[in-house]
Amino acid sequence: MKTANFNKMLLALSAAGLLFGGYFALMEWFVGPMFVTNDALFWTLPLVAYIFLALTSTGISILMTAGELLNNKAVIAHKPVLLTAALSLLIGAFAALTAEMGSPLHVVWLLFSPNLSSPIWWMGTLYAVELLLLGIKYYALLRGRPLGSELWLTSAALCVAVAAALVLGSVFGTAVGRTGYQGADASVLTLLCALASGMSLAPLLFKEQAREVLQLPGRSMLAGLALFLFTLYLYSSRSTVVAEIVWVQLWMPLLLLGALLAYKVKPALSALIALPTVLLVELFFVIQGQMQVLGPKQTWLGAVQSYMPNTAEIAILIFGCSVAYLCFFLFNRLALRPGGSAD
């Protein structure tokens, strides 16, 4: 009863979010730019919305596929909901991305003239493949019986999910000449973010009695990200590189530890702390590498940028989340309808 009301409220909010965010997405696609971007600070909240949703989807995919491969009963029992969640989040991510890139078709065209040395190409392609794999799995789910190659499919989905999360980090990690971006730690960060946000969301998808299985991996992932951020914090606050703008802040690992503590008893509260924190971690990380204005752009924009998202950008985040939730709702409905096999 309570849950049903809550679901209705979420549904209404998502519908409103779709309208609100959709307006800005349409403006961005067809009219003109609305974000607070410029030639130095070009990746802002809309891209972070994509990253956040995609990585969360990845986290859930990893949980689902790993659980399946390890034959974990609890996970397998929740496979439909995990699958629809992962699929929906990824669709939401792509929805946000289309707005960020100014056109839905831009995202599609990425695939057609590949540059194998480009992390973005790999990221886009891997996520497209992931979308496809999840889609096939969902199709199988709808069909009500497993495909012959389900094992292969699941293994592939796991590999692709892990690779996609790592490659997403390398989009930043391979940039030369931007303080704070270079290095493999970017990939570690994105993978940890994926796992942390996925595992934070997972308890909410699980039936209460089945959540036990999540405790160790969930809390480990939150602890892992917290530890990683804390290490980065210690490292960067001791940094003597003048140009380096420190983006990791102490509240990030601390909030994650809070989420960790609440994980068992109050999973909803834990998610409410962890998910925004992960989003902010991703935002701070993405913005940071663009703060220092490079080359002649300094004569246009000054030497250092500052950033505060505007309504349109927040709207795209809402748009992505709303699309994700509505898809989730819809996919679940489809999967659960009479004749559907789930549960």
Partner: peptide, 14 residues
């Protein structure tokens, strides 16, 4: 496709 990867990667801001 306007992904801006080149802008991110160019160390010269050009």
């Amino acid at each position: 496709i306007g992904c801006k990867a080149c802008m991110e990667n160019c160390p010269y801001g050009v």
